[in-house]
């Protein structure tokens, strides 16, 4: 009970720190919305024949939700936990009675809450500006997909801190990993424009699987419940691998 209270205490401060950091707010909260507005403006009212005549703007809603969730979880944790580690804050935290998992839980809670806010914001913008339907009938699939995705990408973010050596390297390494995957996985460019070979390469990485799973849950053309268990399993396996790497190699002390 006390641990739960402490996790909540830690979460409150993680929230404060997040919203006071202009870089976090811009890259995590504003940039995905900006991407959505830009893509929607460029591609206007086009339709994608390969996806049953789906409006391009409707395609971009789940794409940008995918990007926003990955930003709020994996990118956010990889950057901010590395920065906290290099500033000695993790080491200092270890010198207090605070159980180590609470420290991490507070930050994961923060990432999940921001993800949830972004899902709601992007979906509402889609509904209000581009008349993209809200998938009420597939809400269970939407929620399960987001929970599996957010949890898995949180674990991957913690695993990434293992390979990031310094504060300066944090944004370079996270961008080098995520940006190409966004392009290859159909987040920035509709997948109908991407060669099959590239897509099957992207299929090896969890960004593509998470996007496919969420796309099915969201898309108005989906028939059935929208659960994509195969893709979700791949995302979960990546997450589990990240969890094990973090558990084994996570560092609490500065590396540089």
């Amino acid at each position: 009970m006390r641990s739960l209270g402490l996790a909540l205490h830690e979460f409150r401060f993680a929230q404060k720190v997040f919203w006071r950091n202009p870089a976090s707010v811009f890259f995590t909260a504003l940039l995905p919305v900006l991407f959505l507005l830009i893509f929607a403006t460029i591609f206007g009212d086009q339709h994608i024949d390969e996806l049953g005549g789906l409006k391009v703007t409707t395609y971009y809603i789940p794409a940008i939700v995918t990007l926003a969730v990955i930003s709020a979880t994996m990118v956010n944790l990889a950057m901010n936990v590395t920065i906290a580690r290099e500033a000695g804050l993790l080491k200092r935290g270890r010198g207090t009675p605070l159980p180590p998992w609470v420290f991490i839980a507070g930050r994961i809670g923060n990432a999940i809450v921001i993800s949830a806010v972004m899902v709601v914001v992007v979906t509402l913008i889609g509904k209000l500006l581009y008349d993209a339907p809200i998938p009420w009938e597939r809400i269970p699939a939407v929620i399960v997909t987001l929970v599996v995705g957010a949890a898995s990408f949180c674990c991957l973010g913690l695993a990434m801190t293992v390979i990031i050596p310094s504060r300066e390297a944090a944004s370079a390494i996270t961008n080098a990993i995520t940006l190409p995957l966004y392009f290859l996985s159909g987040i920035f460019i509709p997948e109908s424009e991407i060669p099959d070979g590239v897509l099957s390469f992207a299929n090896h990485f969890p960004v593509r699987d998470f996007f496919q799973a969420f796309f099915s849950a969201y898309s108005p053309n989906t028939v059935g419940s929208g659960f994509e268990w195969g893709e979700l399993a791949v995302v979960a396996i990546w997450g589990l691998a990240g969890f094990l790497i973090a558990l084994r190699y996570f560092r609490w002390t500065p590396r540089s």
Partner: peptide, 11 residues
């Protein structure tokens, strides 16, 4: 108190 100052700058 560690050798280097460790504070959260935003708080």
């Amino acid at each position: 108190v560690l050798q280097s100052t460790t504070l959260e700058p935003a708080l």
